[in-house]
Computed example of a mutant assay.
Amino acid sequence: MRYTKQQWYTPAEVAIHNTASDCWVSANGNVYNLTPWLEEQIRLCKCTKTCSCPTKNWFCNDCVEYCPCFKRGYVYCDAKRLAMTILMYAGKDLSYWFKDGNWVQQIHPITGSTVTYRKHGHGYRNPVVPSTRWRPFEPWWRGDKYVVGKATAKTRPIRITNTLTGSTVTLEVCSEETIYEIMMRYLPHNSHLMSYTWRYMGKSLCLKKTLEENGILDERDRFNDVALAENMHIPAILLYYDDDLTEDPPRDECFCGDVTCKINKPAACYKSTST
């Protein structure tokens, strides 16, 4: 079996990356990993600051001594303003910040000029009023430098039932994913997928097509129209064991979870086992 990299992400998968050391956001249909961008922004801060908290990290909130930016009345350090703004919205969708691929703009009430609308301020690199501190700003949302995948427009539940063992797993998948990509999500529950035939209503599924293209419709909107619960009926895909005696190639991760095993990497633990 050929393992592929995940292409589509659900909002729940993006939401778990909500820390300074692991910061993901979604915007304009893409998912961005802004962790290296945050680190680069923090290096721009030249303020002298002594942190008294034990963690000694830039994102701690219990510092006793603050940099001069705090003494001037700023909520955040001026050099860290943009980074802290992104960190506040880590794991969330930021599409409403943009319009037609550019930052939403407004008429500044003081200067009367058209500027980008940023709720928490512009930062020291792009001041609103004319200043010698102005520096070019590299938009993180342009290009593929920080893109890790695509954000789904709609998620849907799907049940996968193994007719051999009788086990059933309910997954939240992206509506744009093909059956093969859904198989990658189901892989932790059954590592010997190629020995099974995937069927729905007695018909074999095409692995290169989505659920909708295979005739597995999402009827939750119809349930809502007649005041029924969305989870009243979840379509089920049935897996039939073929007994073809095939074996999957070794994976790069161990299945046993033993720490010493992961360090030594014995060949026996890295062979796929059937369920």
Rank of each mutant, 00 (worst) to 15 (best):
D225L: 15
E230Y: 02
A83H: 04
V64L: 09
N18S: 15
M1T: 14
Y124V: 03
E177A: 03
A90T: 12
Q106T: 08
T116R: 10
Q7K: 08
R125P: 00
K209M: 14
A15Q: 09
L193S: 14
P266T: 03
D221I: 13
E230F: 01
A20R: 10
V14L: 03
C53G: 10
V31T: 04
T152L: 02
T152D: 04
Y200G: 00
H189T: 04
Y74H: 06
W97K: 01
A83S: 13
A236G: 04
S52V: 06
I107Q: 12
W134T: 04
R159Y: 03
W58C: 02
N102K: 10
G215K: 06
R142D: 11
V25I: 15
S274R: 09
I86W: 15
P130M: 02
R72A: 08
Y117N: 07
L238C: 13
V226Q: 10
G215D: 01
K208V: 07
M184L: 08
E181F: 05
T114K: 11
K99H: 11
S272D: 10
Q41S: 04
V104E: 04
C60R: 09
R220T: 10
R222S: 12
T132L: 05
R159I: 01
S21D: 13
A79T: 02
C77Q: 04
H17P: 15
R159E: 04
